[in-house]
Design a protein around this nucleic acid. Sequence first.
DNA 1: TTGTGTTTTATTGCCTCC
DNA 2: GGAGGCAATAAAACACAA
Length: 291
Amino acid sequence: MAACASGRDVGGLGTVLLQTHRGGASQPLESFFLPSSSSPSFLVRFDDSNGSTTSRPFFTSFDADDNGDDDLDEYFRQPEKKRRLSVDQVQFLEKSFEVENKLEPERKIQLAKDLGLQPRQVAIWFQNRRARWKTKRLEKDYDLLQSSYDTLKADYDGLLREKDKLKAEINSLTDKLQKKEKATGSLDLAHNDAMSREIPLEKPSLDSASGCKQEDISSARSDIFDADSPHYTDGVVHSSLLDEDDHHNNNNSLCCRNLLPDQYVFPKLEDEDYSDPPASFEDQAFWSSWS
DNA sequence: TTGTGTTTTATTGCCTCC
DNA sequence: GGAGGCAATAAAACACAA
């Protein structure tokens, strides 16, 4: 009958592994039948009826009052049971795990000695504990990513709403302006023609045409566009977005430079081509939803 | 008590490293 | 090739509602 140290090893028929409560080393079978003061723990290896080999801990330790032939006999008659580690053992292992979650051989032996377990059991406990720790960490990471995603999604949705609002506002202003131009143009064509030669440079008077305040438009979502938001200086609309757009398509530009009121045309925003997302937008899908 | 879901202990097979 | 780690899994132990 051979004793082996690892449940992983393939053992022979009826192999009985005996380990002392302290030390984890295999001992002669005499100790098994004549239990000493050190409480032994057992691993019984046997072949079942279909020939496959199983190896299970029979019981991990004796309590002091478990000693005695009757108790031994009773243990042998019982079907083999998987014993849970005691609360103290688990606490000890947990503390050790907190210090270092990997187990060097020396520490494994020492822990096994201290806890009255087989080194193999200690190794298995650490293995399973690492697996649990990894699962927990994954759950944490997932939650973190989820909340991060939720925040970004909320921001994104807010920006979309703001964008739609601004679009509608611009279209409404454009319509009003065009109506007004039509009306004034048909009333006094001759006068208008004369005036067009003398009209000073000034920014398009959106506010006067619509009744809206200029700052309502330019200040709207200044936190969104910030440096990119359009602004007027000296009768010129400046915007990195719009300027770039101007480069690409002079005929379809929202931007108006030094134009007389009756000469520029406000295209509808739906027709705009925001074909060039800012470099910072790596996600094309994200950008394309804006245009 | 029992059925069911969860946790814990242990095994197996594969992989990597020395 | 052996030792040890990990993922997947089995199975016992446990918790708990019905």
